[in-house]
Amino acid sequence: MTNTHTLNKTAKQKKLIIKSIMWAIMSLFAVLQFFPLIWVTNFSLTKDSDVFTSGILKVPDPPEWQNYSLAWVNGNILKYTINSMFVVGTTILIVAVLSLILGYAFTRMKWKFANAWLTFILIGMMIPIHTTLLPNFLIFRQFNILDTPLALIIPYVAFSMPLGVFIMTGFMRSIPRELEEAAVMDGCGVMRIIFQIILPITKSAMVTIIVMTFINNWNEFIMGATFLSSVMWKTLPFAVYEFSSQYVSRYSVQFAVMVLSALPSLIVYICLNEQIAKGVTFGAVKG
């Protein structure tokens, strides 16, 4: 009796030790992983010259909040955030609708070459965006849409839609057909079937598509850098890009711009982390 008791006790102790070690490893790694972000946030609240201190971190005493107001105004944060919301929002809307309609046409409608066209669209996932920068630049210049939101929305949609179609067709194949059969009997048109019957069922796939389109386009800047030249339509990543070249020695304010422009996607992530995790691992793991 006492023997098993002590055995249980040592087993418990062992478990506790293992658990503490796991905690220690995790926390240490998390600190290492996060240290760069902490450092930048820390010095975004100090004076510009404090960056040259020999210490590794510095207590901001008092915190220089005006760095943030300066960053907000001179970094064009508000304008660029609104631009990003407009461009990415429009992209998400188009991608969601097209993925739904195409998904339906590819999995439910009966037509020749459906598979060939599906492959054509899915190949889009493999093409590096960088190879289209130059030809698109020449084409957009020809059509006078350089420096307009269309110059971003067209390629964003073209490069996000294949993943959307991939997710949607995969999902729709698992939906039973009975519901639609009843609808067709009642004389429902295809559009009504798609938007009234299919759309509500595909909610989880829709969320994944929206989340992935957001993640893949919100932080995109190389197309912006190529197709936009005036302040009018630039997106949020440009806040950092432009500020760091205009205010070279204002280190702390630069850091404040970085923190501010990281915030929107951070907030979205905190709110939707489950969906984002699901979207990122989609297709990589069965089930």
């Binding site: 998390a30 992983q33 932080n219 422009s261 984002i276």
Partner: peptide, 16 residues
Amino acid sequence: LFFIPCVISIMVTSKM
């Protein structure tokens, strides 16, 4: 926590 650097713009993390 571990995924946070991935949602921050490459622009920010690179300049950082």
